[in-house]
Deep mutational scan, measured.
Amino acid sequence: KELVLALYDYQEKSPREVTMKKGDILTLLNSTNKDWWKVEVNGRQGFVPAAYVKKL
């Protein structure tokens, strides 16, 4: 599985998104969309802005 690092805090704005804190390590589930990547964090799956994370 591929991991990404949260570069910034992000507060979810819809049920399809997830909240993350700067420094969190997230599991990358899908990065086919250039703007929104699907990740898993704390057992929850959802989208975060691709610009807010970096592949490890």
Rank of each mutant, 00 (worst) to 15 (best):
S31T: 11
Y8T: 10
A50M: 05
P49Q: 02
E40F: 06
K34H: 12
R44Q: 09
E40W: 06
L29Y: 04
V48R: 00
K34Y: 08
G23A: 03
N33I: 06
L3N: 07
M20H: 01
V18Y: 03
P15M: 10
G46S: 02
A6R: 01
N30K: 07
V4P: 00
K22V: 08
A6I: 02
Y52C: 12
G43C: 08
E17C: 07
P49D: 02
V18A: 05
E40K: 06
E12T: 09
L5A: 07
P15F: 10
L26I: 09
Q45K: 11
D35V: 12
M20Y: 02
V53G: 01
V48H: 00
E17V: 05
K22S: 08
N30F: 07
V48G: 00
A51Q: 14
W36G: 01
K21H: 11
A51I: 11
E40I: 08
Y52T: 10
E2H: 13
T27W: 13
A50I: 03
V18Q: 03
D9G: 06
Y52I: 09
P49L: 04
R44F: 06
K54L: 13
W37Q: 02
Y10K: 01
K55V: 14
N42R: 12
T32I: 09
N42C: 10
R16Q: 13
T19F: 04
Y8P: 00
V39G: 00
K38H: 14
Y8D: 08
V4M: 05
S14A: 08
L29G: 01
D35K: 13
L56C: 11
Y52K: 09
R16C: 14
S14L: 09
V53D: 00
L56Q: 06
P15L: 12
G23M: 03
K22G: 05
E17I: 04
Y8I: 11
K54W: 08
A6L: 02
I25C: 06
E12R: 12
L28F: 03
K1F: 15
A6S: 06
L5R: 09
V41K: 15
Q11V: 15
A51V: 10
N42H: 12
E2N: 12
K38M: 15
K22F: 05
E12P: 14
K13I: 09
N42T: 07
V4S: 03
A6N: 01
T27L: 14
E12W: 05
E40R: 06
A51N: 14
Y10G: 00
K1L: 15
A50H: 04
A51H: 13
T27E: 14
L28I: 05
G46Q: 02
T19G: 10
S14Q: 08
K22E: 07
I25Q: 05
D24Q: 15
W36V: 03
K38R: 12
D24C: 06
M20L: 10
L26F: 06
Q11L: 13
Y10H: 04
L56P: 04
V48F: 00
Y10D: 00
Q11H: 14
W37P: 01
Q45Y: 08
G46C: 04
K38I: 15
A6W: 02
D9V: 02
S31Q: 11
D35Q: 11
G43R: 05
G23Q: 02
F47P: 00
G43W: 04
L28K: 01
V48E: 00
K21A: 10
L56E: 05
Y8Q: 13
T27R: 14
W37D: 01
D24Y: 05
V41A: 13
A51R: 13
E12C: 11
R44K: 12
L26M: 15
T19C: 06
P15D: 14
K55A: 10
M20E: 00
Y52P: 01
R44G: 04
K34I: 10
D24P: 00
K13D: 06
G43P: 03
R44Y: 06
E40H: 05
K54D: 10
N42W: 07
G23I: 00
N33F: 09
K22M: 09
L7R: 06
K1S: 12
V48N: 00
R44N: 07
L7M: 11
E12M: 13
D35F: 15
L7I: 10
N42I: 06
P49C: 04
W37R: 02
F47W: 15
M20W: 02
Q45N: 08
K1P: 15
L56M: 11
E17G: 13
G23P: 00
L56G: 05
S14D: 12
E17F: 07
M20K: 00
E40L: 08
N42E: 12
L26H: 03
D9C: 05
L26N: 01
W37T: 04
D24S: 08
R44V: 10
A51D: 14
L28N: 01
E2Y: 11
Y52Q: 07
E12H: 09
K13W: 05
Y52E: 03
A50W: 01
Y10V: 01
